[in-house]
């Protein structure tokens, strides 16, 4: 047992509120000859919601698994709560709350039993565990389902129960791998609401997502990963401004419009039958296209993280 080292992670709350919760330096992970994570460095500060974005196979989940101490890094250093993931997995995991991408609730138990059995893995006394479980079920709007087996839950309820389970040990860091994957809009919004509430309580949250809207709504800071590398890091709105512009002009991509854009000399991209143009004065550009290029339609819209994402990672399908 490593009980003697148990306190290293929690002592000095004052200090730990200033030093990073996660610190990765030149982190590398190979699977055989495949490099899944390629020399990445990042820091996550206390109280922040930090996002990992990227297409399939970018290395997001692998990074999460290393942080969770279930997949040993091939190279570089990775510390969580100031402890090395290789040497102190039990001490780190004690303070982690994990929402995995794949639903792995225990189908042999009911909702509340899932929480109680999980609490036991953290050595939480039975009475305390029941109090926490009931509170968490209420928080996740699942009280009525307490005695329902897992099979009887909808997809959204299962995800909320997994989030409740991840909170049973009062974690100091929540790691969410695609928390709203496969949910309908109502269920997704409810999940966002809960995550927002947790953020409001000062929780440190690490999340991966494909949904850029989710990242824009929730993350204070994020990185975009592709092919194992971190391409950019920053606050969502800054990244949009930097890589996509506040506003984007979108129009039908007829040869006439493209010829027009060539004349203006502005940067543009053709996607299918649409063309996107970037300019410091998007409204002026839109008016010019409308007046002189005879487009079917043209409009100006807000730049989004999706624009940043696609311009950085390209439009090739990743499978």
């Amino acid at each position: 047992m490593q009980g003697s080292e148990e306190t290293t992670g929690v002592e000095g709350e004052d200090k730990s509120t200033r030093s990073p919760i996660i610190r990765a330096r030149d982190l590398v992970k190979n699977y055989g000859n495949v490099r899944a994570v390629d020399t990445i460095s990042f820091e996550v500060m206390p109280g922040e919601v930090f996002g990992f974005l990227g297409p399939n196979g970018a290395g997001k989940t692998t990074t999460m698994r290393m942080i969770q101490c279930v997949s040993p890094p091939t190279g570089g250093t990775l510390s969580v709560f100031g402890l090395d993931v290789r040497d102190h997995p039990a001490d780190i995991k004690k303070w982690l709350g994990i929402v995995p991408q794949e639903t792995n609730l225990d189908p042999d138990f009911t909702c509340i039993e899932n929480l109680l059995v999980y609490a036991r893995y953290f050595d939480i006394p039975a009475k305390e565990a029941r109090q926490r479980a009931e509170k968490l079920l209420a928080f996740m709007q699942l009280e009525e389902k307490a005695d329902v087996p897992i099979d009887g839950l909808s997809g959204g309820m299962k995800r909320r129960l997994i989030l409740a389970r991840a909170l049973i040990n009062n974690p100091r860091l929540l790691v969410l791998d695609e928390p709203t994957i496969g949910l309908d809009p109502q269920a997704r919004h409810l999940m966002w609401e809960k995550l927002k509430a947790l953020q409001g309580m000062g929780n440190t949250i690490l999340l991966t997502t494909h949904y850029l809207e989710e990242a824009e709504r929730l993350c204070n800071r994020l990185v975009i990963m592709d092919r194992g590398k971190i391409l950019v890091e920053g606050e969502p709105m800054d990244l949009v401004r930097r890589y996509a512009g506040d506003e984007i002009v979108e129009s039908e991509g007829s040869p006439q419009v493209i010829a027009c854009l060539e004349e203006t000399g502005c940067r543009y991209e053709v996607h299918g039958d649409m063309v996107q143009a970037f300019s410091d004065q998007p409204r002026v550009l839109a008016k010019r296209i409308l007046d002189t290029c005879n487009p079917g339609r043209v409009f100006v819209r807000r730049g989004t993280l999706e624009d940043v994402f696609l311009s950085l990672t390209g439009r090739d399908l990743r499978e």
């Binding site: 039990a90 001490d91 995991k93 004690k94 995995p100 794949e102 639903t103 050595d123």
Partner: peptide, 14 residues
Amino acid sequence: YQKTYDAMVATPLS
């Protein structure tokens, strides 16, 4: 199939 081990190793259990 149930990923029970995955859920368990996300706790202090090794």
